[in-house]
Design a protein around this nucleic acid. Sequence first.
RNA 1: GCGAGUAUGGCGAAACAGGCAGACGCAAGGGACUUAAAAUCCCUCGGUGGCGACACCGUAUCGGUUCAAGUCCGAUUACUCGCACCA
Length: 810
Amino acid sequence: MDMKAVERKWQARWEKAKFNQFDKKAPEKQKLYVLEMFSYPSGAKLHIGHWYNYGPADSYARFKRMQGYNVFQPMGFDAFGLPAENYAIKTGVHPKDSTEKNIATMEGQLRAMGAMFDWSAEIKTCDESYYKWTQWMFLQLYKHGLAYRKEAPVNWCPSCRTVLANEQVEGGRCERCGTEVVRKNLTQWFFKITEYAEELLSGLDGLDWPEKTKNMQRNWIGKSTGCEIEFACESGDVIRVYTTRCDTIFGVTYVVLAPEHPLALKLTTPEQLPAVEAYIAAAAKASEIDRLSTTREKTGVFTGAYCTNPVNGKKIPVYLADYVLATYGTGAVMAVPAHDERDFAFAEKYGLPIVKVIEKKGGETVLPYTEDGIMVGSLQFDGLFGEEARAEVAAYISKLDKGGKKVNYRLRDWLVSRQRYWGAPIPIVHCPNCGDVPVPEKELPVKLPYDVEFRPDGKSPLAKNEAFMNTVCPKCGKPARRDPDTLDTFVCSSWYYLRYADARNEKEPFSREAADAMLPVDTYVGGAEHACMHLLYARFFTKALRDMGYLDFSEPFLRLVHQGVILGPDGNRMSKSHGNIVSPDEYVETYGADAFRLYLMFGFSYTEGGPWNDDGIKAIAKFMDRIEKTVLRIHAMKADRNETYGADEKALDYAKNFAIERVSRDLENFSFNTAVARIMEFLNTIGKYEALEHKNIALLKAAVHDLVLLLAPFAPHFCEELWETIGGKGFVFEQPYPVADPKALELDEKEFAVQVNSRIVCKAMISASLSEEEIRTLAQSLPEVQQRIAGKTVKKCIVVPGRLVNLIVG
RNA sequence: GCGAGUAUGGCGAAACAGGCAGACGCAAGGGACUUAAAAUCCCUCGGUGGCGACACCGUAUCGGUUCAAGUCCGAUUACUCGCACCA
């Protein structure tokens, strides 16, 4: 088969029939929104990862379509972002130009892949018609108090010259360029994702997502239940600390503030001031890497101030130390050296007292002892243990009006402003009189100007474009300046799945009607690397939009599947630096799109991936060739003799229905490799039956008919062609997927493994109609069994229906 | 350091819910066809021993539960990923 021509032929026919479009006029069919993460046009061509994501996922979508679902499978481009801009800085090619060129190439390749993408809903996030609504999203969040600006210590990448979200910092380094991230105090825009921390956490339970991904989000959100406690200072100030171990409060021997804590300088006594100032300055300079290192020796400084432990009135010193984080809890902790490793190390170094107030149940207590234990030296609380102890102490602190139970999350608000060019401008005007003023919705989009000096110098590129920056205040009409920052590209991708549902709507980001009809996404397929970024942000957006009344559901992606990663042949991630990049193009050229996709599905476990190896691709081409020949040969046969139906025919029927059942089940589970294997088995069985002297031609024809249908989702162009050749009407994808006949799967007899004392002694065909007792009798009569049980008594007999019989003798 | 995951032939991998380990392929070896090669078709293919029907061993390591363990439980090792002073 000339696959190139066949691919072109069917792609053109599908296109002409608008076959790949979601059928908005078929409300009687159940909708199924199958989405693959859209592509990022950083390189011109599709790589194996794209094929591996989109090919098999498309096979799933096509399968569901044949099952009768009204499938919506759109595709688009996540087109804003740093790579295009960095490329521009290096080569001088404008990001808009390079991005548009890349998109054109990639779109052509995606179309050539033959996936069932509904291009009528295509979106590109860098189009005005899209980012207009990204800006609109920002304004809605702003109006509802979910977007705010504040000065905060932020992660700054000196190389990319921009701030990064916490999620974009990996081990103290920029996830994009690997440069060590420094902390800076800057005024930045944030989205209040923390407002939804609890729901983002609890909502995970009901999702059909990989457990691992759910766990990563759980850890990232980091819920902790503890207690806030007030320590009054001599100055009259109050230090609030957060602890998960209020049962250790009688062991507090000092209190520690983060160096950035607002009370740090205020509490410091004049004698200690020089030392404290020096320490704060040094801590500010320390890089994230140094501060994050758990092995680093603890440092700190005494403020000269004292505060009072509310439960026993003891006076204890106040320290500053950078092992306390300003951004978590209250930025202050009560130090219990006896029962916390960090406090223990610090106390030893600075000669602070260590007071044991928890004892191990039934064992020697070695300090620092951080497990749950029995309270001692704690007055009326002595003898209490663990959770109960904490509840009692927390209640007591509440009663004293010195704090009480408190839940904290590690999740921080999402920093969304970027000092970069290639993104959606933030639709805010800064007016000297009115302050921050949102751009009125009817004035959207705030257009991203083309002529901009985007080479970085630490300021936003847009800040240097006077024509862009100068505007008038929408409120008072006086001259004002635009916000010079652009939005994190993750903002664009946090709502694109909503836009697909109504991609050409010029009046609103999506209509309520479209959202209700098509969303949420039923099956979402994409890489696992987005666990704590895109997938979390998108959930946040959905919940926020729901609360604003634009949506009626709480979770955007009901089912999530991660494809694995195809590594280079050397087992490393494909990269230019490794020189191990394998291009799909030559394979597609040689074997065709269907064979390539089929190989990807057969050669790997979909969610595992693995090192690239093309050893099996020829075998796939051979397999397709065998299918073609078999189909044509059997199609040409004439069913003109007396057809008979005996054991061989029943076996063929069984093989067919077995394949149908298993392929359907495996496709549902994204277990493509085994699905293809089942089709291979079916083909082998057809071949064996065909070789028989007496055969039922009608039955054979029915078998290859179903074979073509079974294979269609895996090799769409190829099967359309075969379908046409054997005289099928319309598109093969208009046919219902075969359904297994349960009766054909019932065999009269099955092969049992016969065991004596759990060791296999022989196999036996046993009729399905026999009772357990009869099976036992039959098994005992077998010569192999007789030999082994002679002179012994059968104590027990275990029968696993259809599989095994085990005689226990002694 | 904490958390999660993975570990099966020469290779990619299968194994529903504890029930015949290695499906389906690749590679390899042997054979048929051919002047020859390619293509195609047939056979063998976890290890050890045996001419042999067969026997024993085998799913990272050690132990346990069970009539029965790749699968469940406990410990260990290696690799991968995530978090990393979150009080």
